[in-house]
Amino acid sequence: MGQLFDKLNSDVRFVEGINGCINCGTCTAICPAAEVYDYQPRTIAHLVQTRDDSIIENLLKSDTIWYCGECMSCKTRCPRNNAPGLIIQALRKLSIETGLFVESEKGRQQLALKRMLSDTIIETGYCVHFDHTTLDMFPEQGPMWQWVQDNREAFLPKVGANYKGNGPGAMRSIPQSDIDELRNIFEVSGGLKWMETIEEHSAKKAKEMGLEIGEGKSSEYFTEVYNRNNHAKHSRK
């Protein structure tokens, strides 16, 4: 056993996720990620069972651990009650903590996800905010959605939404005192540190790649990681 394995093994999700995988491949047969990516959850379970730090380090640097969609279909069907999806969560945590996530194209996407999701959480109290669901980011919303966005103030009350209003209701403005509590939770429990870690390692990588990282969702590095897809590398062979 090595240091990386020990760290993995200190994550309760890893402990819950692996109980002597028999390599039957049921998880791969059912996995939506394995349909489209060069990915097998069976291999993930097999590799972490080696307890070999060099193998684990290669995983932490790889695109492989970012292919999973965390649907947890693998958990349902595994005859040994393993959950490769939980193993993946523990590996991703370690990849972020070690900064190795920036060594893969899919891992570098963490910067965009951090700015799209965790920044939104501590600013608004929502993971997803109506104002951010624009067609330039999410064109599959369709022309109906553009109409909703254009007519939000006049239309949303019709369907019972309390858009940016006080008190309870859909799309309400969450009081600042509650946002402050949420931010305190992130501070105390390591959430803010986690976000800083993603920014710091991404900034170093952006410099190495000659890209401006800036702030928000329009920098060169954000645009690169949000859109870059090496299809030939990732696709199922």
Partner: peptide, 10 residues
């Protein structure tokens, strides 16, 4: 993986 397990539990 932009919110750690400790944070979501809290």
């Amino acid at each position: 993986e932009v919110v750690p397990f400790e944070t979501i539990q809290t």
